[in-house]
Design a binder for these strands. Structure first.
Lengths: 153, 153
DNA sequence: GTCATATAGTAAACTGGTTTACTATATCGC
DNA sequence: GCGATATAGTAAACCAGTTTACTATATGAC
């Protein structure tokens, strides 16, 4: 934690974790703002994006698949998918492979929405990091990959 | 968002925002784990750390000061401070400068706890970023500062 | 002084998400 | 097959934090 003003201005002598916290706050805010246009939360976005990935692989998708893939806890996944169903963005139906499981699919509306949402997020992303030039962005991302590798599992 | 597996492995061709989201998740998890030993949330930690900063400046601190400083919304600040008061970590008393305002101070226990918590967080921070050497860390932080500067206000 | 406006803080209702404890089905060892 | 164990999903209670709408005090214009 900075020995100077810990919250007002980002400084290079702030700890990495503190800078991370600030970036995150700003990024989350932007994310929430973009997603609110689509009427979905970050969690729901992650689930839909994950679902899209499974559908691209042509894999029938259960809630458990989404849990494993997104690392979102299963109760949250259960509730969020019911909300998404209520919003008409996904369809839930009993799996024919495993009668305990629920198969999740996009509705037509849901598929369209996630396409658009992903584009919007990509744009927001580009804008957020637009102060870095190509080289800096590459460096930033490679360091990020290092940190992630170091801290997961 | 990656065109490959979007959630399993961090890759340098993932978008910066997606990598940020992953790092953040990992960092928040670690943070929550460390803070749970002290029985406080991240929000409460931020408030206590901010309060410590004000007390170091020898400034009498109101809830509004904490709101401005931490950018946490005022209702959350109000509730969190009441919890912290109930936990015996801070003292709330009417301000003598402004009779609408509440002055916030550490209890002895609160002061001790935040010292220790800050050390614990600093250690967690060092461990989290320990895969970067000194130079890399400096680069990472300077890019972070750029990004923050670009995106706030 | 007094009226209009701004500020400090909060109650109540709500939201998103987690924890705990459970049901129902599947699978594995025998 | 059949009993033990694991897995898919959920209901209910709970928790942290936000939104909305409000009270009370302070401040500024006149």
């Amino acid at each position: 934690m900075s020995r100077g003003s810990p919250f007002k201005h980002a400084k290079a002598d702030d700890s990495a974790g503190f800078l991370l916290w600030k970036i995150t706050t700003l990024w989350q805010r932007k994310l929430a703002e973009v997603l609110s246009e689509f009427g979905i939360t970050q969690t729901q976005f992650a689930l839909l994006a994950s679902l899209r990935w499974f559908e691209e692989q042509q894999q029938p998708t259960s809630q458990t698949h989404l849990v494993d893939h997104t690392k979102i806890d299963k109760m949250t996944v259960s509730k969020s998918l019911r909300q998404l169903e209520a919003a008409g963005l996904v369809v839930r139906e009993p799996s024919d492979l495993d009668s305990r499981a629920t198969r999740i699919r996009f509705s037509a509306r849901g598929k369209k929405l996630i396409q658009k949402a992903i584009v919007a997020i990509e744009n927001a992303d580009a804008a957020f990091f637009s102060c870095l030039n190509k080289k800096q962005l590459t460096v930033y991302k490679s360091l990020a990959v290092l940190i992630i590798g170091h801290n997961q599992g």
